[in-house]
């Protein structure tokens, strides 16, 4: 079975060492997904596998045979930005733009987790199954995505404005 990337089926590379990240960037020239550390410490390579956020640098492509992968390139249609992408622009949720695709994919996966009530480190009551995406919840849940330019406030605002407790 092939990997389906943004709706397009792709054969796994013959070399099992190839990570999902390098498959995207070097074999498919889909460079929207970024390599920041290549060891699971920065989150820049975050993509969605069947809707769940994962680190494509630690994922051997061969393991994702038969899975559906969504990358940043799969979020917008032509020039119409995804609402979260638009919010990142509006709230200046980035500076250099390098961690940005990972932040955006991560946030989309994060919202799905929150919507089904997954707990996080700052969850006060584990029995509570409804997650209210407060600024604190967003910060904790997004902590696997580093930003060195210091756009943290804008990132959190963009997510909150799109999905948070005050979102329209």
């Amino acid at each position: 079975m092939p990997i389906v990337i943004n709706g397009v089926a792709t054969e796994v590379p013959p070399d099992p060492r190839v990570s999902l990240l390098d498959l995207l960037r070097e074999r498919l020239t889909m460079t929207g997904t970024k390599k920041g550390c290549n060891q699971g410490a920065c989150g820049a390579c975050t993509v969605l596998a069947d809707g769940e956020r994962i680190l494509s640098c630690l994922a051997l492509a061969v393991q994702y045979d038969g899975r559906r992968i969504t990358t940043v390139e799969g979020l917008s249609e032509n020039d119409t930005l995804h609402p979260l992408q638009q919010a990142f622009v509006e709230h200046d949720g980035f500076q250099c733009g390098y961690c940005t695709p990972g932040q955006i994919c991560s946030a989309i996966g994060m919202v799905a987790e929150a919507n089904r009530g997954a707990p996080c480190h700052v969850t006060a009551d584990l029995a509570e199954e409804t997650v209210v995406l407060t600024r604190e919840q967003i910060r904790e849940r997004m902590s696997g995505n580093l930003c060195r330019c210091g756009a943290h406030n804008g990132i959190v605002e963009a997510i909150a404005a799109t999905y948070g407790d005050g979102a329209s």
């Binding site: 929207g32 997904t33 940043v72 930005l81 638009q86 622009v89 980035f94 733009g97």
Partner: peptide, 8 residues
């Protein structure tokens, strides 16, 4: 350059 960057 925002739209470019958020689309990767």
């Amino acid at each position: 350059d925002g739209p470019l960057k958020v689309r990767g």
